[in-house]
């Protein structure tokens, strides 16, 4: 029993990361029908940007307090979000009308570029995150669940909930769904389609980066290849959850955890 609960609890944390990544992945797929192979690398980039920001804060950043960590998380999400938008602008937009294969190959190229670029900047070896989480926690049915685990799952859930509300309630969220259905009709409605696609990349990239920073802190080490495997897993979660249904995606993410 305790092993089952322990596995479930640990799985829930990892599943939350996968869900965040898969959400952005499927948003991008939905809006421009692109399997963005570089998506997992944005997760890796998020982990490294978080790593650098925390290092700047100082070696004893565990003393930076909860506030400091949250700010680093937000900053990493914004920075990588802007990078994601830039990637769309530079690499994908010129190819939107080209055959699907050329944009797919470009996505692989972007992925390699991000991996090698990160290797040059941060090195090829594993880096230790400048942040040690406490192992305090509660006992539940014989399993140990740390406060950190609870916090990470809560933050992930909050991000997913915000996204859910944004997509369903806001005009830009509705425009995203409309572009997925009929791009030409959106042009005719006066929707600035490219801007909305850019926004989608921003959100997708920042969710992946949020997962990356949290995962980096949770596992304690980061590496330039960490996005590769997770990209494949996000793909699996996305396919499991169907490339459309939102809630299904969250659950599928948790299950693959």
């Amino acid at each position: 029993m305790d092993i089952l609960v322990q596995t479930l609890a640990d799985g829930l944390v990892i599943g939350a990361f996968y869900s965040l990544i898969a959400l952005g992945y499927t948003m991008v797929f939905g809006i421009i029908k692109l399997l963005n192979f570089a998506h997992g690398d944005l997760y890796m980039l998020g982990a490294f940007v978080g790593y650098t920001l925390l290092s700047v804060l100082g070696k004893d950043s565990s003393g930076a307090g909860l506030m400091g960590i949250l700010i680093v998380l937000l900053l990493a999400m914004v920075i990588v979000g802007v990078i994601g938008m830039g990637i769309e602008r530079v690499a994908y937009r010129p190819l939107l009308l080209a055959p699907r294969l050329s944009i797919l190959i470009t996505a692989i190229g972007v992925s390699l570029f991000l991996e090698n670029g990160s290797m040059i900047i941060w090195g090829a070896q594993y880096q230790v995150y400048p942040l040690q989480f406490s192992h305090d926690g509660i006992s539940l049915l014989g399993a140990k669940i740390t406060y950190v685990q609870i916090g990470l799952v809560l933050i992930s859930a909050l991000l997913m909930l915000s996204l859910h509300l944004f997509i369903n309630r806001s005009l830009y969220g509705k425009a995203m769904r409309a572009i997925a259905l009929d791009q030409t009709a959106c042009h005719l409605m006066g929707i600035h389609v490219h801007k909305v696609i850019g926004l989608t990349f921003f959100i997708g990239a920042s969710l992946a980066a949020g997962a990356g920073t949290m995962a980096g802190a949770y596992y304690g080490t980061v590496n330039f290849m960490m996005g590769f495997i997770i990209g494949l897993k996000a793909f699996t979660a996305a396919v499991l959850g169907g490339l459309v249904a939102f809630r299904a995606r969250c659950w599928a993410g948790c299950c693959s955890g």
Partner: peptide, 15 residues
Amino acid sequence: RIFAGLTVRENLELG
């Protein structure tokens, strides 16, 4: 070319 997967109200809002 209405948005078949959005509600009538959402279609109008996007207009």
